[in-house]
Amino acid sequence: MTSTAAIAIAGVTFGYGAGRSVLDVPTLEVHRGERVFLHGPSGSGKTTLLGLIAGVLAPRTGEVTVLDAPLHTMSGAARDRFRAAHLGYVFQMFNLIPYLSVRENITLPCRLSAARRERAGDPAAAAARLADALEIGPLLSRPVTELSVGQQQRVAVARALIGAPALVVCDEPTSALDADRRDRFLELLFTQVTAAGSTLLFVSHDLGLAARFDRTLALGALNRAAAVGDPDAATTATTSAA
């Protein structure tokens, strides 16, 4: 049975090693097809939260359900397979494998997941289509080291979207871009996310972008372990989530 929630978090706590909790989120919900802006200043535990949603980290307590998959009950390997099949991820920067070409970077998820490959049809053709739409078509055969930061971020979006994953998570993808390129980037991102029918979770500290999204969540308020206003914890959280 498919629920309407893309992400459902309940009573989740997380800490690194045996240290104190850096994340304590009683509840967080993102609906399918929603474009959610998650406002997370540094120290709010956003990278940790994204790690939990991506299934790279496992919560200490609580439930993390993504696209109806109970990640908190799944093994690490099962979470890796789930992530490969259903999740697109865009980092703030350095998104690409330096020794692969643009095309190879974009099609990489199709080589890790049969589901992604099936949905993409012909990965090379899908990569070309996405690259054209993201205005990086001519760069497909180039080594990624020759690309500008803006071009690299678009390649990262193409890779996150190939094979139409149901959830796309972006972690500060525009923070390295200037205002003009940031707006164009968002436009292209939205178009492609809509085309793929994916849910978008977009994390940024730049509240100026929030207005373009369906809904805005403030992680500082959601996370009871947030370091905001607690200088000691802020240091810990910053180093662990730098």
């Binding site: 991506a54 490969a84 999740l87 991820y89 980092f91 998104n95 998820p109 890790l112």
Partner: peptide, 15 residues
């Protein structure tokens, strides 16, 4: 390490 993180994000396991 960046490369490893990217591979992890795409769905590669630690193995």
């Amino acid at each position: 390490r960046r490369e490893m993180a990217v591979l992890r994000a795409i769905g590669a396991g630690p193995r």
